[in-house]
Every structure is written in structure tokens, then in C-alpha cells.
Design a protein around this nucleic acid. Structure first.
Lengths: 348, 348
DNA sequence: CTGTTAGCGCGTTCAG
DNA sequence: CTGAACGCGCTAACAG
């Protein structure tokens, strides 16, 4: 008799600690102590209680536990703008991995890229007793998150540094990665390089553009606004912007794209392009990039690592119970430049 | 003065309903009633209380509420095998959308494709007071989920029908989709069609293979075991299996793949293939499939819809409070066959 | 319409 | 080492 039949895993009507205690002829307190591995109880009774608990299929109510102690609820919140973006699902994977390793679970909160919703979602999660939050902030004013920290719930930012508050954060090397990508294009002789990017109001948008601008400046090239398009990253918008750039009389010979959606837009534009070869480099790796019809250089990094690091920072705060030191560490996730040659160009 | 400054959204130390009541000179009960829109309170006092609540930035503690009322906690659990699989992140998106539209949030639970872990995770989520669960079951015995339902927590299955219990479920048309894909290959004159699939122990694996077998039988072709590979869907394993099949003396002229990882493996194998053209059709759509170097036919469907439908079924149960009728509805998400021609074959 | 009492299930505190 | 009382924050159920 190794495992019990699943059908008995739950009492028919949810059982309380008192019920267990009664049937075992002890006090609820003894059951509680046995269950939490607390001291002040003999090994004999503990074993007996645990056996009974397992027998009856009793599970303590975590809601009640959290309500009572103010102690950890083993629950953290993950607030992201848009789960449909693969970056965020990867991030969620990382956060979940670390959370589970600390015995905690993850509650999701989607903001739909709206700052008001973000504030609402964060407040809701706090009212649900999350021990902490990993937040990908939407806006450029994080003051309301500062209020959460003050309330006693630590917050770690992902993909953007804190603005207007102190908080730990994990960011990708947006600047360095983009600069490297541009440098590679420059090293290959390109002088007219187009940029398809994100709004300057987004941290990543701003940093990646800066990487582009610095790389060009290092090469003694001025940024030409006709070669720059910055928008919220729709694939359709990116494709159109790429087409427009290619229609210029002195069109760019290479394009740099600031995220995967811009890259895909550019790829679609180039798919129909019949003129000279256009080189392409972009932020974010793409699955099957080695199967595409065009060679592609990408700035690759692990979004899972972003999530993992953020969660780790969060749990460090949670372990060291105290009045939340004004920490403001910054972890930078490195990027790698990867060349994906086309199969046709690399015969076997 | 439209919005309040974010900094005041939380009291410095978490405030209780009694604090609010005291400062307003009323009883906690009045505050409670005002907050929940309960009846038995004059509009005047309600307005005054709500103003005060908003002023003080008070938020009720949902843990305490849930504990007391036994009512809905506005929290549902989503249990999946492996978030890294895009199917599950899409599913999560759908579930989250519907949950939010019902004012609920989603707690994640990963099982790592282990039946024991699944049982543990489900029990944990129940102990956290979820109102219901959407589960992508791991094993082929769902008895332990039946125990959860008996406990009073409704469960909806996704991607697999219930086995050994009664439960609502949402499944993809695995059988029909695969049969269509095979039919298309047969219509193009292929007679030797290879199958790269999943273990028969998985529902999807079994159903998709059945679609393959039926399509062949309809065409008067016997299944040739040399053309069939069934394994847990690693990309590497799939690639190897594809290579092995192509090495056969009378090799298949077409391959059918049972999921995206098998498709990718097959694509990689074909990338280096120098012989006659091999046709490829697979379950699951692939982003940028139209940019690949090979034409590809895919069985496409919306994983988001799977999540949405599952969540909708769940909330229907939750709305109709009662002793959980032994419901066992089955929603089938349809598939579409999509041809992705290669750019090179479709000049513009 | 409003306020008081009691208790959700558990854990801290203090007696035995 | 064990048990009894009390309270976490909120809300049914009953007073007034």
C-alpha cells in the first residue's frame, strides 16, 4: 500500500484542523505544530498526527494561514503588459520556475499596456496578499509602485529600470546589444542603415535607439531621420515603414530592427523586394531563423533569464525579513549577436 | 482634481475596515455594505462611505473576505504541463482574458508533465481557495480530479477529454485536422506518407495518429510501420526520425507531423536534404511559415480559443451555484488547413 | 436603515 | 511537551 487512491484526497466537505484534531484525540494546536514542523512536540505524536493527516487527506487552508500570521502566503504577482508577446510568456516561465523552487505560486495580471489598469491590477494583487511583485511597468512614472513598496510589499521591475522610485530591476542590455548589431553591419561596409524602432517613451525603445545612434556616431555617420521610423511595434506598421525606406532614392543598404515584430515586418517587406540585397539585423531572436530565405543577424538573449533574475531578486528581499531596505540593484542580462545564414548560402 | 496621486493609494500601514469605520464615525458593517453594494443602506451614507474609502485609499483584504464568506474568491487556477510550449502560453492568454472579464485572476501551476506533481499542484491551488480550475491533464487517469470536483471545485479539462470522471472539456479537432492534412497530401498523388508523432499514451498523440490511419485507409493504403515514428516530441528526436525515414530505400514522398516540434525537426532534416522534393504537412501553425524555404501545409487552430472556451465553461459552472451537476459537455475547436507556399515559388 | 455579536480556519501567546 | 484563549479582517445572522 504505497500510494492512496486519488479519490480520497479530499474530504467530501472541506475538513478543518479541528476535525482532524478531534478524530485523533488531540488539540488543533498539536496538529498545527506537526504540520508546520514547529518544535515543541514529540516525534511520536508528530508522526502519529502526520499519519492521520495523510490518512484523512486533510490539507490546511492557505487562505486562513495567510490571514492569521501576516507571514508569507507563498504567492507572488506577475504584472505584464501583454501576455501575447512571446517575451512575456518567456518571462513568466522564468518567474514561475524560481517561484516554485521557493515553494510559491504565481498570479498573473495583465495591464493591456494601460497605466491605469496597471495601478488597478497591482492594488488588486496586493489585496490578495501576494508576498511580492514582479512588474513590467507600462508608463514612465512608477510612483504608485513606490506606494506598494512602502506598504510592505517588495516590487522588482523587469525590462525597465525604476523611474521616480527605488527598486531592484532586471533589464536587458538594450543599448549594448543594438550597438553591437549596428557595428557588425558597419564592419561589413554598410553606411546607410535604417532603423525600425519603438516609441522613445518606452525605455527599451529609447535605449535601443541610443545604441543605434552611438554606433553610427562612432563610425562618423550622422543619424538621418529619413532612415528612422519609431512606432509602437506592429508588424504591419513595420512592414510599411520598411517599404517606405526602400523606396527612397538613396535607400539604406541595411536595416536594424528594434524588436521581433519590427523584424518580422521588415522580413515581409524584403520578401517581395527585388532590388539589391538588403542586410538585416534585429533585436530578439526568431525561431527557425536558420530556415528563412534571408540571412539574418539577431541580438539574442534569454527572456527566461530576465524572469528568473527578477524572481530571485524578489525572493532575496522576502527571505531577509525587515523593513525593506531601499535597495536599488540593477541586473543586466547580456545579449549575444548571432548570425543566421541562409541554408542556400551554406551548401552541405 | 480628477485622479489622486498614486502615492496615496496605500495607507502607510495596511488599513482595516475598522479604521475606516472609526474615522467615518460608523460601524464596520456599514462600510462593508457600502463597499459590496449590498442593500439595506441609504444612498446618502453609501456615498459618504465610498468617498471616505476613496479618500483614505483603503482596499479590502480579499483573503479575509474569501475566508469569511465562503463565496467566490475571484481566482481560478490554470494547470498546464509546460509553459514553455507556445500552445500553453496561448491557452493561458485565452483563460486570462475570460477570467478578467469575469473579474477574476489566474494562478499558474506547472506540472512538468508529471502526474504526481499535477496532483500536488491541484491540491495546492484548491487549498488557496480557487473557485475553479482549468487543467491540461498529464496522465490518462483523471480520478484525482474527480475528487476535486466532489470537493466542490469545478474542473474543466483542456486539450484532452475526461477519462474516468465526468467533466466539461475543450479539445482541438485532432483527428479531423490530421485527416484533412493527409487527405490533401493524398490528393496530390502521394502514396507513401511518413508520420512523425507523439506517444499513443497522449490523447492528442492517439487522435492525430488515428486521423492519419483513417485517411490512409480511406485511400486504400495500409499503414507501414517503417513510415511511422512516435515519441515524445523533441525537435532533435523528430529530426533524427525524419532522416531515418528519408534513408529508407523506398522512402516516403511526404511527411505528416503531429505537432510543431515534430514539424520543426522535419524542417531541419529537409533543410539538408538534396534528393527529390519531399512534401510536408503538420499540426500547429508556425510563425513566418510563409518565409521558409520549403512549402508547408499546416493544420491551424486557435489555442487562445481553447483557453477562452475552457474558461467560459468554467465560469458557467461558477455562475450557476449549486451542487455541481454532473456536466460533461465537450467543445471541439475546429481546425483549418493552410497552405504556406514558398516565396520563391510564388513570384510577385 | 444601522449596529452588535459571532465565527470563517488558522497561528501566536500564554497557562498548565 | 501539550492545550486553551484570543485575534487576523471581514461578513452572515441577528438585534434595535
Amino acid at each position: 500500500m504505497t500510494t492512496r487512491s486519488g479519490t480520497e484526497s479530499f474530504g467530501s466537505e472541506s475538513m478543518t484542523m479541528r476535525d482532524v484534531a478531534r478524530r485523533l484525540g488531540v488539540s488543533p494546536m498539536t496538529v498545527s505544530r506537526a504540520l508546520r514542523g514547529a518544535r515543541g512536540i514529540s516525534e511520536a505524536t508528530r508522526a502519529r498526527v502526520l499519519a492521520g493527516v495523510s490518512e484523512l487527506g486533510y490539507r490546511p487552508n492557505k487562505l486562513a494561514r495567510g490571514l492569521r500570521s501576516g507571514g508569507p502566503n507563498e504567492l507572488i504577482g506577475l504584472v505584464v503588459t501583454n501576455l501575447a508577446n512571446p517575451f512575456y510568456s518567456q518571462l513568466a516561465i522564468g518567474v514561475e520556475q524560481v517561484a516554485v523552487s521557493f515553494g510559491a505560486r504565481v498570479v498573473l495580471g495583465g495591464t493591456g499596456e494601460d497605466a491605469g489598469t496597471e495601478q488597478e491590477v497591482v492594488a488588486d494583487l496586493v489585496s490578495r496578499g501576494v508576498d511580492g511583485l514582479v512588474v513590467v511597468p507600462t508608463g514612465y512614472d512608477h510612483a504608485h509602485l513606490g506606494a506598494v513598496t512602502a506598504h510592505g510589499t517588495p516590487v522588482v521591475l523587469a525590462a525597465s529600470p525604476p523611474m521616480g522610485i527605488d527598486a531592484d530591476c532586471v533589464v536587458v542590455d538594450d543599448f549594448g546589444g543594438t550597438r553591437e548589431a549596428c557595428r557588425r553591419l558597419l564592419a561589413r561596409g554598410h553606411r546607410r542603415i535604417g532603423f525600425l524602432g519603438l516609441p522613445a517613451s518606452l525605455w527599451t525603445g529609447s535605449e535601443r535607439f541610443r545604441g543605434y545612434a552611438v554606433a553610427l556616431e562612432e563610425a562618423g555617420i550622422d543619424v538621418d531621420e529619413r532612415y528612422v521610423s519609431r512606432h509602437r511595434g506592429d508588424i504591419a506598421l513595420a512592414e510599411r515603414a520598411a517599404r517606405d525606406m526602400l523606396a527612397l532614392p538613396d535607400r539604406p543598404t541595411a536595416l536594424v530592427t528594434a524588436n521581433n515584430r519590427n523584424t518580422i515586418g521588415a522580413l515581409r517587406a524584403l520578401r517581395d523586394w527585388t532590388g539589391d540585397d538588403i542586410a538585416l539585423a534585429g533585436f530578439d531572436d526568431i525561431e527557425l531563423a536558420d530556415m528563412l530565405q534571408l540571412p539574418l543577424t539577431v541580438v539574442s538573449y534569454s527572456a527566461v533569464d530576465v524572469g528568473r533574475s527578477a524572481a530571485k531578486l524578489l525572493f532575496e528581499h522576502l527571505e531577509s525579513s525587515g523593513p525593506l531596505p531601499r535597495s536599488s540593484r540593477r541586473v543586466v542580462i547580456p545579449t549575444t549577436l548571432v548570425d543566421h545564414p541562409t541554408a542556400a548560402l551554406v551548401p552541405h
